[in-house]
């Protein structure tokens, strides 16, 4: 693995994004639109939904979008033959996948800044903890979404299937991560399951940051997310094959 080849992939993926204005629009605008819709929906009520649920949504939306984009984009590499060409070239599998993850991390960072600014500036979301840390959790969760997408694309044969893997990989996580109901109130088995799923830790970190917890108290959640990123990336590298049947 070399920095030059990793960045070759990163800059190529970013160049592809640059050419694709609609995808840029989806990455940057769509989360704000959905967030705004939820804020508007509860605007006439007494509830604090924007404050309590908002941070969780900021962790989850980017991950979902990045999962979809990554799984389809890498599947396109498999079906168009570009992956076959790359596998005959002096580039390591890690260069390829880490290069992808870096490109989407950068896109996710821009997305997190825009979404946080919109949520706090326009929708009036109030948080007690450091906003930069909330941005970091959002970016890490988005990177996790894209590494999951990379792994998922190995299971799909067509873009059609890749899109359908999104509910398989993500919806269970979204259901049990604490967004819909507090994890403490769930049946014990579901609570256990939620502990094995990475979104739970992103949601947990966001909840803590929302009520003003210290940086130190979310360190373990961030470490768990990073471990999941490393794990899914490694799985992606191991399952990517230079030789295919």
């Amino acid at each position: 693995m070399t920095a030059r080849r990793t960045f070759a992939t990163t800059s190529r993926v970013l160049a592809q994004l640059r050419h694709d204005h609609r995808t840029i629009g989806i990455i940057l605008v769509l989360p704000c639109v959905i967030f705004g819709l939820i804020a508007w929906m509860f605007s006439g009520t007494e509830s604090q939904v924007v404050d309590t649920m908002g941070p969780l949504l900021i962790a989850i939306f980017p991950a979902v979008i990045m999962f979809l984009i990554t799984s389809v984009v890498t599947l396109r590499e498999r079906t168009s033959g570009t992956l076959e060409r790359l596998m005959s070239l002096p580039i390591s599998k890690a260069d390829f996948l880490v290069g992808y993850a870096l490109a989407f991390a950068l896109a996710a960072a821009v997305q997190a800044v825009v979404l946080l600014a919109f949520a706090m500036g326009v929708c009036g979301m109030r948080i007690e903890g450091p906003v930069a840390l909330m941005g970091l959790v959002s970016v890490l969760d988005a990177v996790l979404g894209s590494t999951l997408g990379l792994a998922a694309s190995a299971l799909a044969r067509t873009e059609f299937q890749a899109v359908q893997l999104m509910p398989v990989f993500l919806i269970p996580q979204i259901l049990v991560c604490g967004l819909l109901m507090p994890r403490a109130a769930m049946p014990l088995v579901l609570e256990w399951i939620s502990r094995a799923l990475p979104f739970t830790y992103a949601a947990q970190a966001m909840e803590k940051l929302q009520v003003g917890a210290s940086t130190w108290s979310v360190a373990s959640d961030i470490a768990v997310i990073c471990a999941f990123i490393a794990g899914t990336l490694t799985a992606g590298i191991v399952t990517l094959r230079r030789r295919t049947a």
């Binding site: 030059r4 080849r5 960045f7 070759a8 800059s11 190529r12 160049a15 592809q16 050419h19 694709d20 168009s80 033959g81 570009t82 076959e84 060409r85 790359l86 005959s88 070239l89 002096p90 580039i91």
Partner: peptide
Amino acid sequence: RHRVGYMTQEPSVYSDLTVRENLAHFARI
């Protein structure tokens, strides 16, 4: 891998990049 050039039957370049961007990518690799 440095010494063998391979052209697949289906054109295997990135159709959403320019000609130069495509080749620059492979040159960097």
